[in-house]
Simulated assay, not measured.
Amino acid sequence: MNELRARDLHTEVGSGDLNGVPFPQEASCGLRQLNDDGQSGAINMKRTPDISHPAEVWRQEGYREILGMGERIWVEDVTTDPVWADFPRISFVTRIGEWNGSFTIYEYNTVTESGALHLTDENKRRAAEFVIDWTRRVAETQPK
């Protein structure tokens, strides 16, 4: 998120640790701007050996697969949907091994150095790479 030049951003670890320290089955981290009540984003990791599609883990529909990313990843992008004009956001989900990763960016609640956040296609591609990278790290470092 700091690549997006989000202003006064800090993290709130809800559970677990995404830096290689073992956690049972799940970890989450919220991203907030200082002096703001709403989230700018969130990343979640969850081990689910019995659920094969990451969108099912968070019981969400509306995802479409992104091809050419090296790993399977799906996106729900409502940043340009007029129905969601007041609450634009984008969510990515992936699965590596038994681990599912989710990364959501709330455009409507993120202010950058130059004003309101408006994600470019390049920003979106890099966000997809980010959740793939973190999910891979967790899958490789967490005990089975």
Rank of each mutant, 00 (worst) to 15 (best):
Q25N: 14
V21Y: 12
Q39Y: 07
A27Q: 08
G20Y: 13
E26S: 13
S40G: 10
R32G: 00
N44G: 07
K46I: 01
M45E: 03
V21G: 02
G16L: 15
P24Q: 13
Q33W: 02
N44F: 08
P22Q: 15
N35D: 13
P49K: 08
R47Y: 01
F23S: 02
P24M: 12
N44Y: 07
D36I: 05
Q33V: 03
R47M: 08
G20N: 13
P49V: 08
N44I: 09
G30Y: 12
N44W: 06
V21C: 01
G38R: 11
R47N: 07
S28F: 12
G41A: 05
I43Y: 10
A27P: 00
L34S: 12
R32D: 03
G38Y: 12
E26Q: 14
G41P: 02
T48S: 11
P49Q: 06
G41Y: 07
M45K: 01
C29T: 14
D37I: 08
P22E: 15
Q25D: 15
G38H: 10
T48D: 10
S52A: 05
E26N: 13
G16A: 15
G30R: 13
V21L: 12
D50Y: 07
Q25V: 09
D37E: 09
L34M: 09
R32L: 15
G16R: 12
G20C: 04
K46G: 00
Q39W: 07
Q39A: 07
G38M: 12
Q25L: 07
Q25W: 03
P24C: 05
G38D: 11
G38A: 11
A27W: 05
A27Y: 04
P22H: 12
E26K: 13
L18G: 15
Q39F: 06
D37N: 08
K46W: 01
M45N: 01
A42T: 09
L34E: 13
A27T: 03
A27G: 01
I43E: 06
C29W: 02
D50E: 10
G30S: 14
S40F: 03
S28H: 05
G41E: 06
N35K: 10
S28E: 11
M45I: 02
D50K: 11
S52I: 08
A27N: 03
